[in-house]
Design a protein around this nucleic acid. Sequence first.
DNA 1: TTAGATGCAAATCTTTTGCAGTGCG
DNA 2: CGCACTGCAAAAGATTTGCATCTAA
Lengths: 152, 152
Amino acid sequence: MAHVASAEEKIRSFPERCHQAGLKVTQQRREIYALLAGSQAHPCPEEIYEQIRDALPSLSLATVYKIVDQFHRHGLLRKVPTRSQVARYDARTEEHHHLVCTTCDGIEDVMLPPLPPRLTRLPDDIDFHAQSYELVFHGVCSACRATQRAQG
Amino acid sequence: MAHVASAEEKIRSFPERCHQAGLKVTQQRREIYALLAGSQAHPCPEEIYEQIRDALPSLSLATVYKIVDQFHRHGLLRKVPTRSQVARYDARTEEHHHLVCTTCDGIEDVMLPPLPPRLTRLPDDIDFHAQSYELVFHGVCSACRATQRAQG
DNA sequence: TTAGATGCAAATCTTTTGCAGTGCG
DNA sequence: CGCACTGCAAAAGATTTGCATCTAA
């Protein structure tokens, strides 16, 4: 499965990407990165913390916040723009887009063919240097629609 | 200027849109809606509160939260997806996109020609009912680039 | 008249900070 | 060995809730 192979590659190249960024490779960082690289769920810091506690009981939530923030600032993680007040992280840094469920706040990745540059070029009267863009879809995910049907 | 005229129309039709939504028209709601309709700044609840206090000193911050949430749930406001933990609101409900400054967290609106439906159609293997989408650009705004140049 | 709205204060939830101790390089 | 990293606890920031009072319809 393409996704799993890609996650393994990311985990394998993680130490050298830390070195390039001037970050030390600690167990906390390895665990957090591996969790995110292997997940489709775009977890928030609290969820990351809960899921890694089993493997690393000494982990603290403040450390999770510090690590994901560092990773984000060094380009190892993306932060997904959402309408909710909790931060959501994604280890896929290549171009892709997001589906956000308005019912459960779940986030899914979606690959789309690249948009032609002329369609994402900003108007001449806008003085803004865009470094990246993404599409954010809002709607209802499969699981929530099933629940809605079951409950009438 | 097209924007101003549009804001006036929105403010004029505000009472009937409240009635349709089953909401009473109060002074707090009028002030909050008028502020947002006349603003380009996508303010957060705290900023809305500060700016309306002058005209309505009895206003409470909790009320601002309740009102913008109601407006959002009834489609009178959009909530802009961002990477930060504070909610940002927009009275423009027609299709448009957002420029988010990674330096100052400022948000600007941008109109782009509509994307051809074939480019935003989700792949067949994705079971998600999208109701809307928007483009979110991340980059650096004009004011922050000027500051950066001045400071070296 | 009355259901819904507001204001206040307290509670809750999320994120950040300061600092002492630890461990990677 | 030294500097960056971690964990803890406390602080700060954002949002929600409960309830008494008020007000638009």
